[in-house]
Design a protein around this nucleic acid. Structure first.
Lengths: 241, 241
DNA sequence: TCAAAAGTGTTCTCCCTACACCCATGG
DNA sequence: CCATGGGTGTAGGGAGAACACTTTTGA
C-alpha cells in the first residue's frame, strides 16, 4: 500500500473515517453488527485492541468516491458484508477533539438496514457478530454514543420511510412486522390498530404459500408491494405512532 | 499561523471544511447569507475567486473542539456573525472526489436560523450579503447542491421544531408567521386553520404595544412563550401540514 | 368607493383509539 | 382442555380541512 510518512500538507489535516451501524432483524429482536478490534494488524486497529466496535475505517482519498464509499468498502473488508451504496444513510459527524487517542480523527457515521435472513451467512463470523440491540457491550472510542444517535435517527426515520421493507425478510407476518416496530420504537401497539394502519398504505400483499390456513393460529404471510412502496417513498409519506 | 509544508502523515488525509447555510427571515422572504470569494488572500480563497459561496472554511484541528466550532469560527471570520454553538445544525457531508479543484476536500454542511432583524447590522456588508432564497445566484464549488439539501432539511425539521421561534423577530404577527411557513414549505395555507393550529400549541402570547387596534386591518402582535417553547421542544412535538 | 388585508367560528369528515370475541393449535 | 396466539369489526372522539362574512384602511 502507501509508504509511510509520505503525505505532507501546508496545514494540518484530520484523519477521516466512516463508521457503520448495520441494523438487522431476525423476526424477534433488532440487532446490530459489531466487530472485534485487533484481529488485523493495521495501524488503524492498534487502539482499543480486543474491544467491540462498529465496523468502519479510514477514508481512502484516492479510491473512495464519497464517504459513503468508505463505509461500503470498510464494511466489506471488516465483516464480509457487501451492501449497495444507497443502503448507507448518513447519521452525523463525530469530531470531538480527543475521541481517538492517536490523532485527530473525525468520523462520519452511517446506518444501514439489512434483511438478517439474507445476509447472516455472508458475515464473516471470525471478525463480526450480531448483537441484540438490548444487549450491546461497551464499545471502543465513542461508538456507544454513535450507536445511540443512530438508533434515535432510525426511530425518527421510521415515520417517513417504510423501514420494514428493508429489514423484514421477503415473506413475513404481521405480528413480526409489529414486533419490529415495537423493538425500534420501544413501545407496544394494539394488534388491530397496527394491522389497519399498515393495510391502509396498500403496501402489503398476501402471499399464498401452499399451506392452506386452517385456523387463525397460523399467521397470514405477506410481502411488500415494491411499486407502491417506491411510490410512497417518493411522495414522502408520513406515518403516525 | 502554521508554517507551510510541515504536516506529514503516514496515509493521505483529506482536508476538512465546515460550510454554513444561514437562514434569515425579514418578515417577507426567506433569505440566506452568502459571501463573495476572493476578498481575502488566503490559500483557501484562491479557488472560485469572485464567485458567491456559502460561508465556511477549513477545520483547525488544534483549536476547533468539534466541526461545529469550525462552522462557528469561520462564520464569524467571514461575515462578522457570532452565533452560539448550538445554533449550528448538521445537515450532511459532501465528499465528492472532485468537488474542490485543489485537493480532496470534504465538507460538513450546517445550517443556522437567525432573526434577521437582530443580526443584519452585525453582518459585515463588505464581505457578506443576504439573498432571497428565491433569487440566489450560481454558487462556487457544489454549494448550490449544499443549499438545496439544507433547504430540504429545513423543510423536514419544521415538522419537529418550532422553527419560527428562531427566525421571527421578538414581536411578530400571525400573517408574518404564516408567510414564513409558506415560504419554507412553498405552499399556501388557510388563514383560519393556520391560526388555530398555532394557537393550539400555546406558544403564542399576545403583545400589547400602545397602539390600540382600531380595526381588524392592523394585525395582532405576538411573541413566543419561551417556557412553553422549550417544553414542547424537549418533548419532541409533531406538527402536521 | 372599491380592493386588499385581517380577524373570527362552525360543520363535516376522517383517522386514530379503545375495546371483545372467536378459532385453532399445541402442550 | 386450557392457555396462547392470531384474526377480525365497530363505536366514539378529536383534530384537521373546508368554508363566508365583517371590518378597516389605503389607493
Amino acid at each position: 500500500m502507501a509508504k509511510k510518512g509520505q503525505y505532507t500538507y501546508e496545514y494540518p489535516h484530520p484523519a477521516v473515517t466512516a463508521d457503520c451501524v448495520v441494523f438487522g432483524y431476525d423476526g424477534k429482536e433488532l440487532k446490530v453488527l459489531l466487530i472485534k478490534r485487533g484481529a488485523e494488524k493495521e495501524a488503524s486497529t492498534t487502539a482499543y485492541a480486543g474491544e467491540w466496535a462498529l465496523p468502519g475505517g479510514f477514508m481512502d482519498i484516492d479510491k473512495d468516491k464519497t464517504i459513503a464509499h468508505t463505509a461500503q468498502r470498510e464494511l466489506k473488508e471488516e465483516t464480509g458484508l457487501k451492501l449497495g451504496i444507497k443502503d448507507f444513510k448518513e447519521v452525523a459527524t463525530f469530531s470531538d477533539i480527543k475521541r481517538d487517542p492517536r490523532e485527530r480523527v473525525i468520523t462520519i457515521a452511517h446506518y444501514a438496514l439489512v434483511k438478517l435472513s439474507d445476509v447472516q451467512a455472508d458475515t464473516d463470523a471470525e471478525k463480526a457478530e450480531w448483537f441484540s440491540i438490548e444487549d450491546v457491550p461497551s464499545l471502543a472510542f465513542d461508538h456507544d454514543k454513535i450507536l445511540r444517535v443512530a438508533c434515535s435517527r432510525l426511530r425518527q426515520n421510521i415515520h417517513f420511510e417504510p423501514v420494514g421493507f428493508e429489514l423484514m425478510p421477503e415473506v413475513f407476518t404481521l405480528p413480526q412486522l409489529q414486533n419490529l416496530y415495537e423493538a425500534i420504537l420501544e413501545v407496544k401497539f394494539d394488534r388491530r390498530n397496527f394491522a389497519n394502519k399498515m393495510k391502509h398504505f396498500g403496501m402489503l400483499v398476501e402471499v399464498e404459500d401452499g399451506t392452506p390456513r386452517h385456523g387463525t393460529r397460523t399467521p397470514i404471510k405477506y410481502r411488500f408491494d415494491k411499486d407502491n412502496y417506491d411510490r410512497l417513498k417518493a411522495q414522502g409519506f408520513q406515518l403516525e405512532f
